[in-house]
Simulated assay, not measured.
Amino acid sequence: MTYYYVFDETTREINGPVELPFVPGIGTQLPGNAFELPEMLPPAEPGHVWVWRDGAALQLIDLRNRLVYRKDSGIPLYWNELGPLPDYLTAIPRPGEYYVWGTDDWVLDAAAQREGQVYEANVERDKRLRDVVIRVAPLQYAYELGEAASDQLTALQALKRYTVKLAQIELQTGYPSTIDWPVAPARFVVSPAV
């Protein structure tokens, strides 16, 4: 018995078997995208499809309509081709920004992670220090002019202690992955705008 199949002109994915119409006086006509096989194709393996390539039916992995990831950056791409991924792509998502592609999986780059955590800690520390400087300056000027009240002097000392603690965060045991941020003096905590 003969089995007829057709393939998609773009992807070469096989469909079938199909029944082709019999035309009286002419017989069965094969369209340009059809072929015949003496045996029926078995079902494709899970995650694969049958394709017609170089005059033969073969199975290719089907990763279409999926996100894949660049091994050099972890950037996701939408994939829409049949067959194995090129060497620069993987189907494994990058677990985090400090991971790099190893032999067959993502590997944590501990040095890059530490460097990133130090950077983030410095940014947060500097933001907190800027907030303090705005509050310290008027108190410092009042002190230097001899016009500071006792509560202003107490506040100035508390803010200076807070500033010193901020400047010493890198001395903490868990730095930079775990930071016990000093608490600003209660009178000078800025509440978020509502």
Rank of each mutant, 00 (worst) to 15 (best):
D87F: 07
W181T: 05
G116W: 11
R135S: 15
R161P: 00
V164E: 02
A186C: 01
A155H: 08
P76W: 02
V107A: 04
A149Y: 02
L166G: 10
Y69R: 13
Q157W: 11
V164D: 04
L171T: 15
L129N: 06
Q113T: 03
P76L: 03
R130H: 13
I92M: 13
Q172D: 07
Q113Y: 09
T90P: 12
L159H: 13
L153I: 14
L171F: 13
K71T: 10
D105T: 15
P76G: 08
I134D: 15
Q172T: 08
Y119G: 01
T90V: 06
P95F: 06
R161S: 04
V118I: 15
Y78F: 15
L89E: 00
W101S: 02
D126S: 10
Y141V: 14
T103N: 13
V107F: 09
D105V: 02
I92G: 05
V183A: 04
K71H: 10
L166F: 09
E147V: 03
G74M: 07
V164C: 10
G74Q: 02
D151F: 13
K71W: 09
D126P: 05
A91W: 07
T163M: 03
Y69P: 09
T163D: 00
P84S: 15
V118S: 08
E81S: 15
G102F: 05
D72W: 11
K127P: 00
V132C: 12
A121T: 06
D109K: 00
Y119H: 13
D72K: 09
V68P: 14
T90K: 09
A111N: 08
W181A: 04
I134W: 11
V100Q: 12
L139W: 01
A167V: 07
P86W: 11
V189G: 08
P84N: 14
A112Q: 12
V68I: 14
R94F: 06
A158S: 06
G102M: 11
T178E: 15
A112L: 13
W106H: 06
R114A: 11
V118G: 07
V189L: 08
A137G: 05
V100L: 10
T103G: 08
A121D: 02
Q113A: 06
T103M: 04
Y69A: 08
D72F: 14
W101E: 02
E81T: 10
A110R: 03
D126Y: 12
A142D: 05
V189N: 03
K165I: 04
P176A: 08
W106S: 07
A121E: 01
L171M: 13
L145G: 03
L159P: 00
Q113N: 06
P95W: 10
G96I: 05
A121R: 15
V190E: 11
T154Y: 05
V107W: 01
Q157P: 00
V133C: 01
T154W: 04
L145Y: 12
V132T: 14
I169F: 02
L82G: 07
D109N: 11
P95C: 03
V183C: 01
G146M: 02
E124F: 03
A91P: 12
N122V: 01
P93Y: 11
A111G: 04
I92D: 08
E120S: 07
N80E: 06
R114I: 14
F188S: 11
S177I: 12
Y119E: 09
T163I: 01
L82W: 02
P93T: 00
Q113G: 02
Y98C: 06
R187V: 13
D109Y: 05
R128W: 10
E147F: 03
